[in-house]
Amino acid sequence: MTKISYPFTEKAVRALKAGEAVEITGRIYTGRDKFHKFFADGGELPVDFTDGALYHCGPVCVNVVPRCVPARGAGQPSLPAAGETHRGTEEWRVVSAGPTTSVRENPYEPAFIAKSGVRVIIGKGGMDAATLAAMKKHGCVYVQAVGGAGALYADSVKTVAGVSLLKAFGAAEAVWHFDVENFRGVVAMDAHGRSLFAEVEKSSGAKLSPLFTSTRQKS
């Protein structure tokens, strides 16, 4: 188990190999469909992703104690989005925060990686060859979180430090600022062009062919 923490340096990220189990600690930001579309349409990034992590996740967050104070964490490098600030952000508790399927962001991710300086993308199911190439070029990895493990991931979120684009996107699509501890995953696509998804798909296909051609009558 390799532990990595924010800020994720290029060196640390390039040292990770596909298949390696990791535990992530520190700041991560959620962003899914609306966030990627917003970025592609020229929207200004609401937070600074330099050496940061993007989590494909639509969490279930509930308000606990409404507080009319900015909920920024200390030293948090986030910038308010156009027309939205952290003002009035309330205190939130995360109920469930498992990964969502990443393939939907394939069309946007290479450009996002190039422009944002993101180093770690966390999601489920992997991404395409163009994204893999962008990861190799810019120094970024894809960490597979365990689909369905919403309760455990919610538990690894120690603080909800803020939220951006909440009004514009709604709670499930907003950019949440999570401070996590020992968030578990597996490096499934590394910064050297290796993708476990591509490899497993190929090897399982190779194992299937002889099963198909075998004359052995099943049942």
Partner: peptide
């Protein structure tokens, strides 16, 4: 954890 808390084990 989900069983202990009585919270949804998967968000979907």
């Amino acid at each position: 954890l989900a069983k202990k808390q009585g919270t949804p084990l998967c968000q979907d």
